[in-house]
Computed example of a mutant assay.
Amino acid sequence: MATKFIEVPIVEPSFGLKVADFERNFPLTYWRQVFGDWWQISAYVSGLYVLLLFGGRWYMSSRAPFKLNKLLTFWNVGLAIMSIYAFLRVAPEFFWVMLGKNGFHNTICEWPEHNGATAFWSWILALSKIIELGDTAFIVLRKQNLLFLHWYHHITTLMSWWVMYHWYEPVQQWYVVMNSFVHSFMYTYYALRSLKIRVPRPIAMFITTIQLLQMVAGVTVSIYSYWIMSENPASCPHRNWFGLKVSFAIYVPYTILFAKLFIDSYVVKKKPAEAVKNGGAQKNGVYAKKEA
């Protein structure tokens, strides 16, 4: 991680967003240093997660599945509300910068403006990657089909967000906005399913589509970063090669895995017996599984 730590000052937004005192006073530099000094926590948590995941599956193999319907609804509603509110707080700055001079470039390479709402809720979203590991507990305890994509996505997202938070690159605006936007729809969908509300297939397909587009966007901004950092590094002062390598390592496999999920779920026609055997699709692709 041999790269320069760049301060990102928090200023009052010039585009009319009202910032609460707790957002305005968020100690961004302090928490960036904490994440940098203690990034290993994400590795330890991921290791424990894997142990509990496979240990839990072994424990449940000879036991009847739990229903947990009410708790599942509460869980999904809570994460949906958090994601929606976080998106409403982080999106204004992103679109303000995007629509301004050199907008696309600045969202990737520079911090021309940064406010407390974006800083605080980006931090909340980073912490939420630990909370979201609880999604897997419901799958294991309810004895539902667990896809590799599900737990691979949880582990790599948690570790990459924690590792990259220290450097706090401008491109992370893309990640927090896309993540909170997609999760707003995804957890709302899960909440409806847990309430036994039938959701039309096109909606599930829409959510899987925006998940895939999120990954494609991640690859796209990484390719642009590589090009501009190679051709004119002075014009991209707030990006570093370490963060770029992490971005490629995360988003390229994600794009492949989510493309496969989309094809398996909506393009390739499965026989009824095969669909029942597979238990439907599951988490992180909206997976058309039965939620309750």
Rank of each mutant, 00 (worst) to 15 (best):
A191K: 01
Y224K: 02
T209W: 03
G218E: 05
V199I: 14
P200N: 14
Y190V: 06
F206Y: 11
K196I: 08
T209A: 15
F185T: 09
F206G: 06
Y190F: 12
L192R: 09
H183Y: 07
Q211F: 06
F206P: 01
S222R: 01
H183L: 14
Y187T: 07
V199M: 11
S222L: 04
Q214V: 08
L195S: 07
W227Q: 10
L213V: 13
F185M: 13
I210T: 07
I203L: 15
M215Y: 04
I203K: 06
S184C: 11
T188M: 13
S194P: 00
I228K: 06
Y187D: 04
P200W: 08
L192H: 07
Y226E: 11
Q211V: 10
Y226W: 09
Y224C: 02
M215I: 07
R201F: 07
P202S: 13
I197A: 12
I228Y: 04
P200T: 14
R201K: 13
R193V: 10
T208W: 00
S194W: 04
Y190C: 09
F185R: 07
R198A: 15
S222A: 14
F185H: 11
T208R: 00
S184A: 13
G218M: 01
L195Q: 12
I223P: 06
M215Q: 07
S194A: 15
R201Y: 08
L192G: 09
I228C: 03
A204T: 12
V221N: 00
L212V: 12
T209K: 06
V199H: 06
R193K: 15
R201N: 10
S225V: 01
I223Q: 03
T188C: 15
L213C: 11
T220V: 13
L192K: 09
T208D: 05
V221I: 13
A204M: 12
I203M: 14
W227R: 08
Y224R: 01
R198P: 00
T188R: 03
K196V: 12
I197D: 12
V199F: 03
Y189C: 03
Y187S: 08
Y226P: 00
F185N: 11
R198V: 15
A204W: 00
W227S: 10
I207W: 02
Y224S: 02
R201H: 11
S184F: 02
L213T: 10
V199C: 09
S194N: 13
H183P: 08
Q214A: 01
P202D: 13
G218F: 03
V182M: 10
M215K: 00
I207R: 04
Y187A: 02
Q214G: 11
V221W: 02
I223N: 03
V182N: 01
L212A: 06
A204N: 12
I197F: 12
